[in-house]
Design a protein around this nucleic acid. Structure first.
Lengths: 153, 153
DNA sequence: GTTGAATAAAAATTCAAA
DNA sequence: TTTGAATTTTTATTCAAC
């Protein structure tokens, strides 16, 4: 039942302006799901829905852009597809990819707003990642290239 | 004073994990800004910060991806830099750009989650945008290429 | 227009239960 | 593991002041 409810929540949130969890409770009721605010609060956390300010200045729930486009996972997969080599020099990381792919990957990395990553420059097949310090650079590399990891739990 | 505070909030939020507004109040205090939670609540709304679920399962404030990276404006500027030609055939839009730039632009367009845009395919210098219908295609083109517009107000 | 104190409103969590 | 009732915590807003 939970699965269906979660799906319905996504639908509802993307279709109509849901301002509060209570409102969502009511909308779900209309859809045949009887739950309380407590449950909805958990659902929202699980779905990673966010509360954004709409054009009318009021809050509403929304599906985050990051969830719909650039996830770490899609980035890793894409990177794995075009990856050529990787090197680190202190706080700098240089990643080489197949020709023509650097900009797209660079942009994806940029979009992730990784902590400790100061900036990204991409040419045709090379991406330069400028990190805050050596440690941040190491962590970033790990994060990006760790695409063999099994989901936890 | 408010301006500086807003900027500092952005900084704080992107640098450290701020879980609640009270925490932000304290962090601001350390930075020399004395404000209450009420003000922070307004600031957060104004900055359109969102509360997201972090990797540790706890909530934290964040700058929304759409606001921090791909705005329509940055996309238009970038597109203007590399734009070569544009054509529409019914619900399809084909944009030609300088060699090696199609993927990055395609990805940016994709990230914007434009309504009516079903999908994007990018090669080396060509981007194909598949829209819901002719109208959506026309509107998308307008949106993308309208880089001569003065900021309102 | 901006703010804080107080308050209302909303959301997260605890705790017990199934 | 999932849930609701109750509760706590957090956040938004009201209202007065500046």
């Amino acid at each position: 039942m939970k699965e269906q409810r979660l799906m319905r929540i996504r639908e509802l949130v993307s279709q109509q302006e849901i301002e509060t969890q209570e409102e969502l409770v009511r909308a779900l009721e209309d859809s045949g799901f009887a739950v309380t605010q407590a449950t909805i609060s958990r659902d929202i956390k699980e779905l990673q829905l966010i509360k954004v300010v709409g054009t009318n200045g009021r809050y509403k729930y929304a599906i985050p852009v990051i969830a719909s486009s650039v996830t770490l996972d899609t980035l890793r997969r894409k990177l794995a597809d075009v990856f050529v080599s990787q090197a680190r020099a202190q706080n700098l990381v240089v990643i080489k990819v197949l020709p023509g792919n650097a900009q797209a990957i660079g942009f994806m990395i940029d979009s992730m707003n990784q902590a400790g990553l100061l900036g990204t420059i991409a040419g045709d097949d090379t991406i330069l990642l400028v990190c805050q310090d050596d440690d941040a650079a190491m962590r970033l590399l790990e994060t990006l290239l760790q695409n063999d990891r099994k989901p936890v739990e």
